[in-house]
Design a binder for these strands. Structure first.
Length: 714
DNA sequence: ATAGGGTTAG
């Protein structure tokens, strides 16, 4: 009996040792082994403890690992190094550093094994001071010339964006290696210093070091980073020509460039190559393929790649959602997202963010707000990409409270200095009618890029504040930021809102003369609106005729709207004729023309235009506006019939009457303000000196004392 | 036991 027990015990011990020596031990096996070691008194032996440490660390059970370390009577550098390595491997950088300093305070000297791990823990801009300190410790310990330590230091300087220091260090290295040089190449490349990356690449070659695939991939990534997609593809081809076999990384580095250039032919070729190379199961390659097909608008290939995958990978799922969303398939994207969630997938911040972006870009604003809440309930923390994806949804439906909540969130989480967050906040406040809020955000930004400047100008344009928009434009240039074509679109539309014809003309001409920016169709559309609103309809028309390209529906639409404001029948007919060809299914065009006729008392022609619309099946019961009908020489009863079907927007307008009279501001989402609404709201604003803001898609009407800022006469 | 590269959200 005793012999049997002993035999069993021996067997058990054997298992324990085997478990300790394998790296695949499950967590419960490790815990059993741990219990056994404690029971048998082996826990004082450093080799068992170290093994336990590394097993717990590899399972990321750091609390257990810490306990083991605490129980070691005389920990050596090996005990610490195991845990420090694991902490930096799993990105618990602060813990790794804390442990390193604890080791030093135990009087344990670092060796060339623990230093690289400690240095790796400093590989991030925020830990650069600590990195310098560890570098100092390495020098004091006489280990600064160790090749592993030097490689780690090079890597640390690169990750801290101190590329020059890294380069200097590499130049002094007695045994430079391909790994460190490749790291420098891709370090330069990721920062967009493509020529420096190429320089380092050649320097490496001159040192007699053969570049490997990592070096090549670094260069490709660099071109992508700086938006130089064709060059990225050229490097890929050159690599191929020189006999380097591209690996999964090369493929996933080059595919985004192929997608951004929408080069479908090349995408197909690379897909074939992937299959030939036998790397079609690499999850990054699959994600990159899905993304590429999505960018090339090949939705069937996209789903095919996903379906053939045979297993669920989060990156691929996210790429699928993004691909569907990019191609306007918002409902499908939502469906697969819900499916993934139902299947218990561990959706990450990218998954949620891309779904929110999909909703806010496809008119599902309420859904976007719901998803934001849902993601937080699911325990996923929104980041500085999530906020700029969410904010447009708040702006679209003028959900100021939600927008403010997101603003507060970004302040608390320290992401308000991000240029994307800032630009999105500026846009959100402007769309919610709070242009002062936009300006407040703008003024508080520590760094601004072109998008920020354009966002605040677009805000002022939306609010018809041309003076402020011009001030920003001047400020922008004196701060050294060059305007682009969007800056001019914002500026010109601000002038057209304010009727500043001369200023508009001046800036339109200065665009190509002083800034080297050729006028695009949207600039001409702004000019046509500008001239049209000012009543200079013939000039607007001659501008259209002088345009260096075919005028599109926006141009003719701008002219027709102006013709309606001034009831210019002959030009209105010209514009309408073009529009009926360009966009036959836009009911607004028929109504505008019909109203021009009605204003001239030509009720026959007016009815004809409306019949044409009805025949297209566009509106069942289009009524006339009260502005026209009130002057028609018919019985009151018939007037009522003519007006029938034109009540929806009026109801909204009259709804304003039911709001509390003290309320100074109302914002109605995306209401196309027709003449009747305009007249009614103007009338309401004359009571009690009320101020009313209404957003008409992308411009505001500011009503006060019976006058509207837009100057239209209704 | 120590060192490098890729995909997906603005």
């Amino acid at each position: 009996m005793a012999r049997q027990a002993l035999h069993l015990f021996d067997g058990f011990q054997h298992t324990i040792l085997r478990c300790l020596n394998s790296n695949t031990a499950s967590l419960s096996q490790v815990r059993q082994a741990h219990a056994h070691i404690l029971k048998t008194g082996l826990s004082n032996e450093i080799r068992f403890n170290s093994k336990l440490l590394s097993l717990y660390a590899n399972h990321q059970c750091f609390a257990d690992a810490d306990l083991v370390l605490d129980s070691v009577p005389e920990p050596n550098v090996f005990s610490f190094s195991t845990l420090i390595y694991a902490y930096s491997k799993f990105s618990h950088l602060n813990h790794a550093l804390r442990l390193f300093s604890r080791m030093l305070s135990h009087g344990i000297f670092p060796d060339s094994y623990v230093l690289p791990s400690a240095i790796k823990a400093c590989a991030g801009p925020s830990a650069f001071r600590a990195g310098r300190q560890v570098h100092g410790i390495a020098s004091v310990s006489g280990l600064a010339s160790d090749s592993f330590v030097q490689s780690a230091l090079v890597h640390m300087y690169i990750k801290c964006n101190h590329l020059t220091d890294a380069h200097k260090l590499l130049d002094t290295m007695p045994e430079p290696d391909v790994v460190s040089w490749s790291a420098l190449v891709s370090g330069y490349a990721r920062q967009g210093y493509v020529s420096k990356a190429k320089g380092a690449f050649h320097e490496m070659e001159n040192l007699g070091i053969e570049p490997n695939s990592v070096s090549w991939n670094g260069i490709i990534a660099g071109f992508n980073q700086s938006g130089r997609y064709s060059e990225a593809i050229m490097m890929f081809q050159e690599m191929h020509l020189l006999g380097f076999k591209p690996d999964g990384t090369s493929i996933s580095s080059v595919l985004p460039a192929v997608g951004d250039l929408e080069n479908f032919e090349m995408g197909i070729q690379i897909h074939g190559y992937v299959i030939k190379l036998g790397i079609g199961m690499d999850k990054c390659v699959i994600s990159a393929l899905i993304d590429m097909y999505g960018k090339c608008a090949c939705t069937s290939e996209l789903s095919q790649v996903f379906d053939e995958m045979g297993y669920l990978d989060l990156g691929a799922c996210n790429a699928l959602v993004a691909g569907l969303s990019r191609n306007g398939l918002a409902d499908e994207a939502l469906m697969v997202f819900r499916q993934f969630k139902g299947q218990g997938m561990d959706l990450n911040v990218v998954s949620w963010t891309s779904m929110i972006a999909c909703c806010s870009q496809n008119g599902k604003d309420m859904e976007a707000l719901d998803l934001f809440r849902e993601m937080q309930i699911a325990g996923v923390k929104p980041n500085s990409v999530t906020i700029p994806c969410l904010l447009p949804a708040c702006g679209n439906i003028a959900a100021l409270l939600h927008g403010k909540a997101a603003h507060g969130f970004s302040l608390r989480r320290g992401m308000s200095d991000d240029v994307y967050v800032g630009s999105a906040l500026i846009d959100m406040y402007a769309k919610c009618g709070k242009i002062q809020g936009s300006r407040y955000c703008f003024d508080g930004m520590p760094n601004r890029n072109l998008v920020c400047w354009n966002a605040i100008m677009a805000g002022y344009a939306m609010h018809g504040k041309a003076k402020e928009a011009t001030e920003i434009f001047d400020l922008m240039q004196s701060s050294g930021q060059k305007p682009d074509f969007i800056s001019f679109t914002c500026l010109l539309s601000a002038f057209s809102q304010s009727g500043l014809t001369e200023e508009g003309r001046y800036y339109f001409n200065s665009m190509s003369r002083e800034h080297g920016i050729e006028a695009r169709v949207e600039h001409y559309a702004c000019m046509v609106t500008l001239l049209g609103r000012a009543g200079k309809l013939d000039e607007a028309y001659s501008m259209i005729k002088k345009m260096p390209f075919m005028p599109d529906a926006c141009i003719w639409g701008a002219l027709l709207s102006s013709c309606r404001v001034y009831n210019n029948m002959s030009l209105g007919e010209v514009a309408a004729k073009k529009l009926f060809e360009l966009e036959p299914r836009n009911p607004g065009n028929y109504i505008l023309l019909s109203n021009i006729y009605a204003s001239k008392g030509k009720w026959n022609e007016a009815d004809k235009a409306r019949d044409k619309m009805k025949k297209m099946g566009l509106r069942k019961n289009p009524g006339y506006s009260w502005i026209e009908v009130k002057n028609k020489d018919v019985e009151e009863q018939e007037k009522e019939q003519i007006l029938c079907g034109h009540s929806e927007k009026l109801a909204v307008a009259f709804g304003l009457l039911n709001t509390c009279p003290g309320t100074p501001l109302r914002v109605i989402k995306n209401l196309r303000i027709c003449g009747d609404c305009h007249a009614v709201i103007k009338f309401i604003s004359s009571f009690e000196g009320r101020e009313i803001f209404v957003r008409d898609t992308n411009r505001f009407h500011h009503f006060k004392d019976g006058v509207c800022s837009c100057g239209d006469h209704w």
